[in-house]
Design a protein around this nucleic acid. Structure first.
Lengths: 135, 135
DNA sequence: TATTAAAAGATAATTATTATCCTTTAAGTT
DNA sequence: AACTTAAAGGATAATAATTATCTTTTAATA
């Protein structure tokens, strides 16, 4: 388990127990919806306010400490910011997986043949995870 | 301008003036948020209810007559369903453009090296459109 | 340990979306 | 062309999601 205290401080965020727990949940779970995060957090801090979840998620988003991932036909999930990657979303169980895909060639080609300037890409593949293919 | 009357009926949707106007707006504009669609529709039907917009958008989504496109850091837009394609979103002016990108090779490669089964892909490139690069 | 700005918690307010209920109408039938 | 009826529209209440406000608590630093 990583010590996020310093990392939070570097982002000018106080290392409160609630925040450390949120980062820990994100680290352990990988991807989580607001709703699920709140449920998990209530177990750890029985009087935590939903507003605290939202305020922290928004602050962390502003600091690029975390990222929102918009999933087709499902609620957004949040993840700790890491190197550029894409996502797989299982349509049945909702599981989200990180996948490393090199899109450089494609993006360069698109940039070459269009007038816009590309800064970032968001790719989500949807389908069935291994488990849901069987059951 | 396309006649959507029959197309709506084929989807078991009555061809009401409101619906024809919504499809026309989608056809002309390409991509539009709920909010903007409502504003445009109020000009055409001054007593139209926002509920009518939502009900129709949801019905059309269920019928796969239209699609929702989730845009990072922005509101979702809706578009008439067409052949598979990706999107470019201008971070400054919010303009959305369709782009044709062949992702088959990439998707096949990802499928080959992973355990999940891929059914669809959603790719949004973000950056600056031609106009916003200059201004 | 004292100070203070930031954060937490409680909850009100706002925004987005859906549900309900009554009226109107598209589309098929006579 | 009038008749019938299920579907759709409009008004608005209800719910869900998110943000704002205000008071209390606490992390960080002196």
């Amino acid at each position: 388990m990583i010590n996020y205290t310093d990392i939070l401080r570097q982002h000018n965020l106080k290392a409160t127990p609630q925040r450390l727990a949120i980062t820990d949940v994100l680290y352990v779970q990988g991807h989580i919806t607001i709703e699920s995060l709140y449920k998990v957090m209530v177990k750890k801090f029985n009087s935590i306010s939903l507003a605290t979840i939202y305020k922290n998620i928004n602050l962390m988003l502003e600091n690029s400490f975390i990222q929102e991932v918009k999933i087709p036909h499902a609620k957004s999930v949040y993840e700790l910011t890491k190197e550029n990657h894409s996502h797989f979303a299982c349509e049945k169980c909702g599981e989200i997986q990180d996948i490393i895909i090199d899109l450089d060639n494609i993006i360069n080609e698109v940039a070459r043949t269009n007038t816009f300037k590309i800064n970032s890409s968001d790719l989500v593949l949807s389908g069935l995870c291994k488990n849901c293919q069987q059951n």
